[in-house]
Simulated assay, not measured.
Amino acid sequence: MFQWKKLLAVGALALATAVGFAGCGGDNAASSSSSGAKTLKVGASVDFAPFEFQDEGQSEYQGFDMDLIRAIGKEMGYDVEIQNIGFDGLIPALQAKNVDVLITGMTINDERKQTVDFSDPYYQSGLTIVVRENEQNIKSFKDLEGKKIAVQIGTTSAKETKVIPGAEVKELNTPADCFMELKAGGVDAVVNDRPVNDYYIHTNQQTGVKVLPDRLTSEDYGIAVAKGNTELLTKINDALKKLKDNGEYDKIFAKWFGEQKQQ
Rank of each mutant, 00 (worst) to 15 (best):
S35E: 14
S34Q: 12
N98A: 14
M76D: 14
T17R: 08
A16E: 10
A12W: 09
Y123A: 08
E160V: 15
T17I: 07
K5Y: 15
N109H: 08
G26P: 04
T174N: 05
K210M: 09
A150R: 04
E56L: 10
G43T: 03
S140M: 05
Q54L: 15
G105A: 14
G43P: 00
A18L: 04
A239H: 08
T207Y: 00
A96E: 06
Q152A: 11
T161A: 09
E231T: 12
T128R: 10
D55L: 07
M180V: 00
L8P: 04
L40H: 03
A37T: 14
A12N: 13
A96T: 05
I85K: 01
A150P: 06
I85S: 03
Y78I: 05
D27L: 11
A9C: 09
D198C: 02
N173V: 15
A167R: 05
G36P: 02
E168T: 14
K97C: 03
I85W: 04
L94P: 03
K242N: 12
E259A: 14
E81V: 09
W4I: 14
D117E: 10
I69G: 08
A71V: 08
G11R: 13
A150T: 07
E231V: 12
A9Y: 04
D79F: 02
V187L: 03
I72T: 07
A71H: 08
V191Q: 03
G186A: 11
A176D: 10
K242W: 02
D143F: 04
G247L: 09
T203Y: 02
N246Y: 11
Q205N: 15
V196M: 06
E111F: 08
Q3D: 14
E231G: 12
L127C: 08
G36H: 04
L240T: 12
G63R: 00
L144G: 09
D198K: 06
I69E: 00
L15Y: 10
A226W: 00
I236R: 01
I164W: 01
D117N: 12
F141Y: 08
I108L: 10
A22G: 11
C178I: 05
I149V: 15
K147S: 06
D220I: 06
K113L: 14
V163Y: 11
T161W: 02
I85P: 05
G105I: 06
S157Q: 08
D67S: 10
K139V: 13
K170L: 13
I138P: 05
Q206S: 12
N192P: 00
L90G: 11
M1C: 05
Y123E: 07
Y221L: 14
T234I: 01
K162W: 04
T234D: 15
W4P: 07
K74E: 15
P165H: 04
E52Q: 15
T155S: 15
P195R: 00
A49E: 09
S31A: 15
A158Y: 14
I72W: 01
K255N: 05
K162A: 12
T104N: 15
G20N: 11
A176Q: 11
V10F: 07
G228P: 00
R112M: 06
G73N: 00
V46S: 03
M76R: 06
R194I: 04
K159H: 08
Q3M: 12
M1I: 15
G57K: 00
K38N: 10
Y221Q: 07
W4M: 11
Q262G: 09
K235L: 10
V42Q: 02
W4F: 13
C24A: 13
D120Q: 13
D177N: 10
A14F: 03
K38D: 10
T156Y: 09
